[in-house]
Design a protein around this nucleic acid. Structure first.
Lengths: 212, 212, 212, 212
DNA sequence: ATCTAAGCGAGACGGTACGTCACGTCTTGGG
DNA sequence: CCCAAGACGTGACGTACCGTCTCGCTTAGAT
């Protein structure tokens, strides 16, 4: 069974596959259909059968690209979200971080937030696609944040003797926590307060953390 | 169709229900079966059909008690977990908090941790049972933690001018975050480091936070 | 299990049953409900559960009176149909027979005709109630017809050397046949033609059979 | 959902159906299983679930071919019964008719007779399959009988001025009548007597009807 | 005036079958 | 060798009734 993942391989090993090549149009139609079904109904609504029919595609074609419905859903979200990095903007690293958190909160407050969470909770841990998905929706943001924290340290705004990984967990973890537990709102006011509290423990003795 | 959840209501409205009363034995058999199936196979293994058969019970009986398989699984975990509160032990509130976090990490590192997370992610938001489940597995612990933080403040170990809710989010959120993202281990070393970092921002000027 | 049929037994063995007597109102309510459900939906619509609910009666009460849904349906029809005998009217036996056939055809052309047929086909052969039902809807009419034929013979309108049972089968059988096969209409024109053909073979040499 | 019945349509509209063709083996296995279950237990024993299991076939496959259990049972009987026409044998049409009636009586006296009757009584009137069933078990025989009557008329054994349809009803109707009412045996002696009585009214003036 | 047996409504119980949905695999003809 | 279409065996879904049972409450004849 070829069952090749859609991940582009190195150009060198393109062994000139014989027969009819995959139809890129089919792949896009599938992803589009999955995206639609995600929006109504959430993850549970993304079924192989429904996707195939709505995409005007045979079921085996879907299976040729992805092994199950969850994978299709994840691929659809991956394809769809551009993941624009938060560049270190005009007034320093920490305001940029603040903006990023607000942005994540806005995204996660939508139904799509719950979908993403559910996919993360459901996904097989070690699949290539699962890793890509986690990377895209969690680690990429986290990596951005890491860079921003490092910049703040370099600027002398934060002290240097803390565990960056733990600090990042303190910053991003509460977002998922509120999403799962639903005990309080997930909005900009919260992310601002959160960031203030986190940074309070990290501030260098020379500097106070600026609030916007 | 009453389809009453087994949740005890207020004692005042006990209007002596008519007809044959529910069979407590059936209820327990169902929950036991669900618990067994949860341990192998996780949430996906808990099917109404399988539970009914394994419990030696008719399918409609299961539906009389819970509306779907997820609810049965949640009820099984709820019934099963004792939720022993972490009492404020001999040497102060913060060591107790530290112990609680380690305990949660131990629990969440098991397959059951992923099951709980998946249930939280999947659950309908406003069901009575969903709320009970979230309350049991998240808020109860959080409430304990809140009391411990308050005690630490009263002892003068922590300062008083921080947002308790946000602090609690910073403490418990990262646990779920690591569980979902899987970017790093979820063990005692982590929870210790986490607590240190959180408390670093909350310590009163008079006291240093004790590390074990 | 007493499970006494509602059939009145001989007065002599009335052993003065102890305890609360059966509620005649419940019995009537059940039959009324069954009658209603028969009219919509036919025999298949008469379910024990539905009857009990619609009659405002407990299921065991229904089972106390009749052993299954078919029995209830049959009892409902039995109770309901008065089975007025066709008396030998003014102008002789054969016109009376002709009227009876028309009347039967009218009844059987309704949905109730199919219900009766289906009950006859489904009924356990040897139940007391089944016999009563068959007797009521088939044999009673047949007995009337037998008397009318005998009268016609006595009048000299029909000859005497034929098998009455076979003749009766020839008269009534085709009604059910058309009902089952549906190959042609079941109306007065048909019953008239049918009777003419039957009587053609039975006419005495002296008399011609009168047509209306 | 095409849910096409297996009835062959006109050859012109064979638009070469796309997709995997129906598995003839599955169809036969289903019908065989249904036939087995009919023999024990009668119509009520033919359940979709049982048929599927016994045929080693998925339930949806059964539903793809037939919409309900009754239809499967009818199809099974249809497939199974050869419906050999009673040819006009050596000694004339009326002896052949007599033989046909005896044969039908023999068939109907078995449990299968009651099954057929019950199916006829239960069937939706206007389904394609219902019509085919009625045609096979009733009208085909009736058509044979019609030809035999016509032959007898041509031979001058019967007179020509009677209503053939009514005569046929008189011949076949009583069989179903006795089956439903159960008031008398359904055997060769009866069918012989019946035929004699019917033909007595139809005999031409020149000829007497021969008895075997 | 109780006692007590049976009927009453309600409704839960273990079952069986229903008819549907989606799964993941396969087998067609055609490009 | 891919494509669409769609049938296949599997298995779970949630529902409808089945016929039995256990409740607490009449009801009314027997004590």
């Amino acid at each position: 069974m070829p069952r090749t993942p859609p991940v582009k391989l190195a150009p060198g090993d393109e062994s000139r596959p014989r027969g009819r090549p995959r139809d890129e149009g089919a792949r896009l139609a599938i992803l589009r259909a999955a995206r639609d079904m995600l929006e109504r109904g959430g993850v549970a609504a993304v079924t192989m059968e429904g996707v195939a029919q709505r995409a005007g595609v045979g079921k085996p074609t879907v299976y040729r690209h992805w092994p199950n419905a969850l994978a299709v859903a994840m691929a659809a979200l991956l394809e769809d979200a551009p993941a624009e990095a938060e560049s270190r903007a005009s007034r320093g690293a920490l305001p940029a971080l603040r903006r990023q958190l607000r942005q994540i909160a806005t995204l996660f407050a939508t139904p799509m937030g719950r979908s993403v969470t559910m996919m993360l909770a459901s996904a097989d841990q070690e699949t290539e696609l699962s890793k890509a998905f986690r990377n895209h929706f969690i680690l990429a943001r986290r990596t951005d944040g890491k860079a921003l924290l490092a910049a703040a340290v370099a600027d002398g705004v934060l002290r240097a003797d803390f565990d960056v990984e733990v600090a990042l967990d303190m910053i991003y973890g509460p977002l998922f926590y509120r999403l799962l537990a639903g005990h309080a709102r997930l909005d900009a006011a919260f992310t601002d307060a959160l960031l203030d509290h986190v940074l309070a423990g990290l501030a260098s003795r020379r500097a106070r953390v600026a609030k916007p």
